[in-house]
Design a protein around this nucleic acid. Structure first.
Lengths: 234, 234
DNA sequence: CGAGGAGTTGACGTTGGTCAATAAATGTGG
DNA sequence: CCACATTTATTGACCAACGTCAACTCCTCG
């Protein structure tokens, strides 16, 4: 196993305010893993053996119903924690995590989470802040699902993705990982067909450019208006 | 201000594992408030001056969109924390809380939350467990909204209410606080009309009995089947 | 070059939202 | 205690949004 350098995690919000020695102590317990695109990092319902930090790549977090339908809860970007079942007082993962591209993660045994939270209070505080932020986030999405129609929800979803994983390119801001119509449908509670129709219409109006697993927002301002539902009849 | 007795909060999950002296210290900082039915305990967006524990009554937590549409995030029953913006790393309330019936709450100044979490680690741990449980909860509801149709969502919502606020009466299990069709609609992301139609149909089949702001589940098993979508054609 | 995955688009039907009218229950002021 | 206003619930008529089904295209990969 290769030696891990504290610079790997020194800048991350989860470890903010920790001394170099602490970081080294934490890292000495970590294992770095490569995860190939489309491989699972953990699976919903199984015992939570580890928690993780994403160092590189993009991960989608997915919840599945007993009858196989699923929803994408969120995308994770580098620096974020995932699989922190312990922090939620659980011993199984409440969702699955799948690498959206090739990823690198650090993994720790779950039982260390409680120890870290005690030994390094700011770590505990920071992860709870993360949990709190996610709670808010999901509540906002709920409100969206309850009150807005599909087109607005799709617009919101794309804007959210662009904010956290946007890379500006020639035509506008591109979502920097492969994402299919099906994925967008699972983020917004609709079908790939409806997403496809909506995005084709947007493409005609010049709001977005998109192709196979690839989306670029061209007119983010107009898309925002659409998302907020401030555009009357056409 | 009247003296508060530690027995008020001794049994509550949030204060599990604390000594009597700790409870008294905590209580000495608390203020007990009566809140009349339909009065707000706090409002979405305003600075979070206090956090609360519900001692008696039922509270609904509501999120409102800029354009005035709203969704009921959850109902709070006695013993539960509410308004714990601090635990989420926020300084404004992310939702509003309204008394569904006359209520009694204990209130503490928000800044004490961090102090309590440090002085009484199990308090911190317990509240974070609460936040974690709520995160899971909302995610489950999201999945529901994304994958099930209205009738199933309404069934789920009623079963959830019955589980946390059910009182058995002659005909079955009643929801023990007044709840309107509109409320149920706001829990499930639909309209009062649709809720009314669905529940009228259920009433005809003998699954529920309901009236003005009042619902009783008669055949909870059949309702559960409905909620899970295991009932084929009629 | 063939197969499989991703996307598009049309046709069609259903769910469930909108609009409107009415009824029943509750509260209020005289 | 009664007339009246208000709130809540029910129900019908209508129709739009969106899901389902199906066919076809295009791209990528092996």
């Amino acid at each position: 196993m290769s030696r891990l350098d504290h610079s790997l995690i020194a800048g991350l919000p989860a470890f903010e305010g920790l001394a170099r020695a602490d970081l080294d102590a934490i890292l000495s317990k970590a294992v770095a893993l490569r995860v190939a695109k489309d491989d699972a990092i953990f699976d919903q319902g199984v015992e939570a053996g580890s928690f993780f930090i994403l160092l590189d790549g993009r991960v989608r977090v997915v919840r599945t119903t007993p009858d196989g339908r699923q929803a994408i809860v969120r995308y994770i970007v580098p620096g974020e924690l995932l699989g922190i079942a312990q922090a939620l007082g659980r011993d199984t993962y409440p969702a699955s995590a799948v690498a959206a591209v090739d990823c690198v993660v650090l993994a720790w045994p779950s039982r260390l989470w409680a120890k870290f939270a005690v030994d390094y209070p700011s770590f505990g505080k920071n992860t709870y802040r993360t949990v709190g932020a996610r709670l808010e986030d999901v509540q906002t999405q709920m409100l969206d699902m309850a009150t807005r129609q599909v087109e607005q929800r799709v617009a919101h979803a794309l804007l959210r993705l662009v904010r956290q994983a946007g890379r500006s390119d020639g035509d506008g801001i591109a979502i920097d990982f492969p994402i299919s119509r099906q994925d967008i449908a699972e983020m917004t509670g609709t079908t790939l067909h409806t997403v496809s129709r909506i995005m084709s219409a947007w493409e005609d109006k010049g709001l977005v450019k998109s192709g196979r697993q690839q989306v670029t927002i061209v007119e983010s301002h107009k898309l925002l208006l659409l998302a907020e539902g401030r555009t009357e009849r056409d």
